[in-house]
Design a protein around this nucleic acid. Structure first.
Lengths: 199, 199
DNA sequence: AGTCAATAAGCAAGCGCTTAGTTACCTGAT
DNA sequence: ATCAGGTAACTAAGCGCTTGCTTATTGACT
């Protein structure tokens, strides 16, 4: 028996509400956003939110989770793209920076609304963030071991690399630099930070 | 006519409430904090807040304003400390980083709660932020003009220098690195970013 | 006839802030 | 020393409104 009705309609509306939540949370913060804001941004009544999502926090969790998983995936792809730590760093920083430009609204929620998550959801996000940190850390360590990177304080370099990408979500606003232009500049800066021999 | 009573008592209580607001806003955000939170953190009744401060937004404004002014002052001091752009950058980045470690709670409010300010107060903060940006920008330009700095994209270097300092407010938590240890590392990284001849 | 997206109406709780009053202390006349 | 009178810090109670979310119902489609 085939599915009745248009099975896509509910999913499309659900996604539209999620998108409205991203926009609202990014602009006014989780606690500064009301469920009525989200509903009206999506062009629906306040109760419509609860037809498709179980709570306001659940919306935040969905946004946070997929945002964190996207970042982890794009960094894993970078490490898998080459055997050379220099090339791995290039791709990692490029992907990381480009993502924080293109998805700067959801990235703002991912990085600045952690405190609004429920305890179990927060714990899950912190686990992913730890994986991201280890990935950057191992990458830098491999570069140092191979002699490609030279830096007096690797741990601080790792923090700096992440800071540069994450902070894009804070300062970037629509009409300005192009994403790949920023990413190019950040690759150059990253190589300098880790003391890569040739830039 | 000499002043009656202890004139310091009211000021001390006012400051205590402000400090409670800093703690609460930094932990839960402006919109996530209630005036009752602030009052109870300061060990007072909800109404006490309004004896000393005119509104919740006024508290945010005070915190934001003095935080912004502190940063501007410490950067001006850095520029005035020497004629040499390299030394100016060293001191500027050191002061900037150290400030964001030591005052990381108020710095979190300064950098991540701008959207919660009223329009006129926001405009005032954006003016100070522009001055800070120009100060970093001019410093890097002088270094390039003197041949001390070499970087393909000065504007991006300026953004990166500010990002590194500001993002400390996001990731730093009490027991960890020492403020001057972080500052040392960040001076080294900053010199690499601008391509200072000797590090 | 049955299913489900969507809404109108509204509830209990919590919000920023106010009002009316209490308490503690200082002043100056006795 | 005492004490009325005045002032200012502080609070108890609560007002009007908004919040996240629920309930009962409608209406469109199969």
């Amino acid at each position: 028996m085939p599915e009745t009705r248009d099975p896509r309609r509910a999913e499309v509306t659900k996604a539209r509400l999620l998108e409205a939540a991203v926009e609202a949370f990014a602009a006014r913060g989780y606690h500064g956003t009301t469920t009525r804001d989200i509903a009206s941004t999506a062009g629906m009544s306040p109760a419509a939110v609860y037809v498709h999502h179980s709570s306001k926090e659940e919306l935040l969790y969905q946004i946070s989770r997929s945002g964190h998983e996207d970042v982890l995936a794009l960094l894993r792809a970078a490490v898998d793209s080459s055997e050379d730590p220099v090339e791995q760093l290039r791709v990692a920083v490029r992907n990381f920076a480009e993502h924080h430009v293109r998805a700067h609204t959801s990235a703002r929620i991912v990085n600045y609304e952690l405190a609004a998550l429920s305890e179990p959801h927060l714990a899950e996000m912190l686990r992913i963030r730890h994986e991201i940190d280890v990935l950057f850390s191992d990458l830098v360590e491999r570069g140092i071991a191979s002699g490609a990177f030279v830096t007096p304080h690797p741990r601080m370099a790792v923090v700096a690399l992440q800071s540069l990408g994450i902070d894009i979500a804070r300062w970037y606003r629509e009409p300005g630099w192009d994403a790949s232009e920023i990413a190019d500049g950040y690759v150059e800066i990253a190589l300098r930070i880790v003391g890569a021999s040739a830039a």
